[in-house]
């Protein structure tokens, strides 16, 4: 069944306290060389039938309406075949 993935990330100008907390924890665990972490969300939508342009357009609409808040987040929609 084809899968449509929506990645939602906080906008670059929005402070991401969760990402910052992860960034702070890494050196404490001995990991070095990471200069920034930003935390987002990934949605996997299992779609019935073929993923047509229409379906992608629908998912774009879902992403902009419910899955993300356009005031603070950006999203990317992509199709994964044979997932």
């Amino acid at each position: 069944m084809p899968r449509v993935v929506v990645d939602v990330m906080p906008k670059p100008e929005i402070l991401d306290p969760q990402g910052k907390a992860v960034l702070g924890a890494l050196p404490r665990l001995g990991f070095s060389g990471v200069s920034d972490v930003r935390q987002g969300k990934r949605f996997e939508l299992e779609v019935e039938g073929e993923v047509t342009d229409e379906v992608v357009a629908q998912v774009e609409k879902m992403a902009g309406t419910l899955l993300s808040n356009p005031v603070i987040e950006n999203y990317v929609v992509r199709v994964e075949q044979d997932a």
């Binding site: 906080p10 929005i14 402070l15 306290p17 969760q18 808040n69 005031v71 603070i72």
Partner: peptide, 17 residues
């Protein structure tokens, strides 16, 4: 109210978590 777009802006996690 922010999510409903009745008010501008949004509320995110406290700076110090």
């Amino acid at each position: 109210l922010c999510e409903s777009h009745l008010l501008p802006g949004a509320l995110v996690r406290n700076q110090r978590q």
